[in-house]
């Protein structure tokens, strides 16, 4: 038996928004420790890794490990039926071929349930090596979304260069070129608005704008985003999900031909 209750169903809505443009379907792996998802986009350029810890749920029970293959468009339809303030419960029997979503209004005067068929998906898990990254940049997530949106007007690629002084995002194309530099913030009263850089070695890498823009769909989940980079390895873009977990995106770099 699997049962997970979340008072804020809006968190789950936001998680779905953050993955549904990159992935058509995905397997939600449920275990005693929580719900995990790992999936690559169809072109195998990026990977989504979601972790929702069981202790972050208001109630959580998972007697046997359960892999739920889910069509994300179907799940989006169901999550649209939940009010932002609704309490959500996901429920499935062991070896079930369906999952039930139950939504309760805060005053408990409206209760609804939606049953969704599960899919059999080929499970393909990748081993992600532990990496000490040369640069770890934390910045406001809305700022990062703005930068990705603005630079994608100039070209298909963004160069992210990080030094001790700051981080520079650059793009170039037919209409010209663009550079956005962010310096590390000196004194900030509000942690959410800070730009911080931990640098061992300077790094400059090129990434496809299109994917960065997909990742920024996670912006509503967290006021800050963390970018981790090392030479010639995939970029990690991480958004914390409150007290419950995180979503990480990995993106393979573009290299000189």
């Amino acid at each position: 038996m699997f049962e997970a209750r979340l008072v804020q169903s809006s968190i789950f809505k936001k998680v779905l928004e953050a993955i549904k443009e990159l992935l058509n379907e995905a397997t939600f792996d449920c275990s005693d420790s929580g719900i995990q998802l790992q999936a690559m986009d169809s072109s195998h350029v990026s990977l989504v890794s979601l972790n929702l810890r069981s202790d972050g749920f208001d109630q959580y029970r998972c007697d046997r490990n359960l892999s739920m293959g889910i069509n994300l468009a179907s799940m989006t339809k169901i999550m649209k039926c939940a009010g932002n303030d609704d309490i959500m419960t996901m429920k499935a029997q062991d070896n079930a071929d369906s999952v039930t979503f139950m939504f309760e209004s805060p005053n408990q005067e409206k209760m609804s349930d939606y049953e969704m068929k599960l899919m059999n998906l080929d499970q393909e898990h990748l081993g992600i090596p532990e990496t000490d990254y040369s640069c770890v940049i934390k910045l406001p997530s809305a700022e990062f979304a703005r930068i990705c949106r603005d630079l994608s007007q100039f070209g298909e690629s963004v160069v992210i260069s990080c030094t001790k002084e700051g981080v520079k995002f650059s793009a170039a194309g037919d209409i010209g070129s663009a550079n956005i530099k962010l310096a590390q913030t000196a004194n900030v009263d509000k942690e959410d608005e800070a730009v911080s850089i931990e640098m061992q070695e300077k790094v400059s890498l090129t990434f496809a704008c299109r994917y960065l823009n997909y990742f920024t769909k996670a912006t509503p989940l967290s006021p800050q985003v963390c970018l981790s980079m090392s030479a010639e390895v995939p970029l990690v873009v991480e958004y914390k999900i409150g007290e419950i977990g995180h979503i990480r995106y990995y993106l393979a770099p573009k290299i000189e031909e």
Partner: peptide, 14 residues
């Protein structure tokens, strides 16, 4: 000109 690398060249199947 740059070329997109596949993620599978960094992360191996488990």
């Amino acid at each position: 000109p740059t070329k997109q690398v596949s993620l599978t060249s960094f992360f191996k199947k488990k």
